[in-house]
Nucleic acid binder design. Sequence first.
DNA 1: AAGACGAAAGTGGTTGA
DNA 2: TCAACAACTTTCGTCTT
Length: 299
Amino acid sequence: MADVCPECKSKKVNRDYERGELVCGSCGLIITDGIMDSGPEWRAFDADQMKSRARGGAPISYMRPNKGLVTEIDQYNRDIRGARISTKKQAQLYRMRKWHKRASIASSKERNLAIALSELDRISSYLGLPDSVREDAALLYRKCIEKGIRGKMIEAVVAAVVYAKCRECGIPRTLTEIADVSGVKRKEIGRTYRAVTDELSLHIPLANPTYYIPRFAAALKLSGEVQERAIELIKKASNKKLISGRGPTGLAAAAVYTASLMLGEQRTQKEVAEGAGITEVTIRNRYKELKDELGLKME
DNA sequence: AAGACGAAAGTGGTTGA
DNA sequence: TCAACAACTTTCGTCTT
């Protein structure tokens, strides 16, 4: 991808995946080249066509594997009246059991995967994730299955692998956002994420606060200069060891807030907090730290 | 009246014994 | 496994613009 702003030739182009936009970090121009449209690739000209072409399908909960209805061949070699059955028949039953089991295991795995992949599709299109991430997440999901992540809902594992891949690829998505679109509790995703990373011994770097800045700034309709300034602030703060232990979103939000003040594009703490999905108080605390530690003076 | 600020108490998660 | 702990949130009162 040619990440050069056509307007000012700056190479500081930030990607905003949620909106599918490239935003120039220097002049704030929104570059529309190479945008991904997450909408359907077909068109519908009337309601009938819409109906026949839409492939969204029913909510995932209707697609549970077998809905608990299963066929089993029991282990007792008795007929319906309780009488023993012949050795020949017993051998036949043994073979039937064996194959029946194999068949149902194979198909249950397939069903599981089918559900997981459709859920993955759903989540990633809600989050506007690029195909590459989606593919990677699918691969990771398969690995999880092979490793036998147990006792977790499919949806939770899917959400966890999506979160993991987002972090790995530097695409900022918070746990809360993923929880909102997946219908799995944030806590549960966190737990599952941990289980997954432990089990597969993945080492995923901490989210970098600067990744969030373009999104937060765009949500508040702030210029490219503010973004630039915010990123600068984060960099300075990281030199001062202000980063460790703090939530990356809080820092990013505080940096955006501070930058908006410095450049006279003021936003209220409440607005920034809402855009970033955290509270004003946290912004205040981070803002105070930034101000104190960096010795900033506002005009 | 709205926003900024800060204190205090509560919550969920991490860590170390 | 449990308690201590840090980060964050919620709530609320006060100050500033």
